[in-house]
Write a protein that binds this DNA or RNA. Structure first.
Lengths: 115, 115
DNA sequence: TCCCATAGTTCCGAATTTCGGAACTATGGG
DNA sequence: CCCATAGTTCCGAAATTCGGAACTATGGGA
């Protein structure tokens, strides 16, 4: 397995970032990776509410985030470690990712889960 | 023709905004409406580079922007006037729209059109 | 009033994208 | 060498997007 492709930070496109984060599931995954520094792929499953996300869907979510330049993925043994590229992206597009994550946090506060 | 539906600002969702603006054409339309204050729909066609955007596509782009809460549309006679809701959205999600528009502006500077 | 031009919307089939189960591959440990 | 774990790929079904053609709404004449 050759290392996965990651775009150089100067090739990262706003459209790709917005598309990647326009999916709440991916945004939650990215938020978690950023918050925790490093997250192993499958462990993210159990953490996103109680919804079960199929492995194949998760795999493609990670691929979208990686190709958008939002995360860096490397294999360690049998597991995949995912790191946030937020600092790199922040340098290129100042304020973008914090604003997006704040917006999601805000809207989650506004609408607590329908209990 | 009854007035079009516009979401209240407190119902505006980050996912919808990111999805709407993840399309460069829509982002350009929104940027133009915001910059100029008010733009009539079809006049936006000629302004987006030299690419011809079919009327039906334009119509659905405006619809996506409107339903995401980014613009307000009202009919005046036979034409449609579109206003940016950037101030409302800014109040709810501070920094979000400026950061997105800066990011697009930045990436356009980085890659001038392939002449 | 009727007709026309302008401006947008709707309809609908084709192309593209997303979803997710099942099968497959990679890696490390007995 | 075989197995368990972790992810990826494949592929058909479902959902979205695209855009041409037909349709509708509005206002300005004649």
């Amino acid at each position: 397995m050759r290392p996965l492709f990651h775009p150089a930070v100067e090739d990262v496109q706003p459209a790709a970032i917005l598309h990647a984060l326009s999916d709440p599931t991916r945004a939650a995954i990215f938020a978690r990776i950023t918050r925790e520094g490093c997250v192993e792929a499958c462990s993210a499953v159990s953490a996103l509410g109680d919804r079960v996300i199929p492995k194949s869907s998760l795999s493609s979510h990670f691929k979208v985030l990686r190709e958008a330049g939002l995360i860096r993925c490397e294999r360690h043994g049998t597991e995949m470690r995912n790191h946030s590229r937020i600092l790199e992206v922040e340098a290129r597009f100042p304020g973008l990712l914090p604003a997006i994550m704040n917006a999601y946090a805000r809207s989650l506060n506004d609408e607590p889960p329908p209990s």
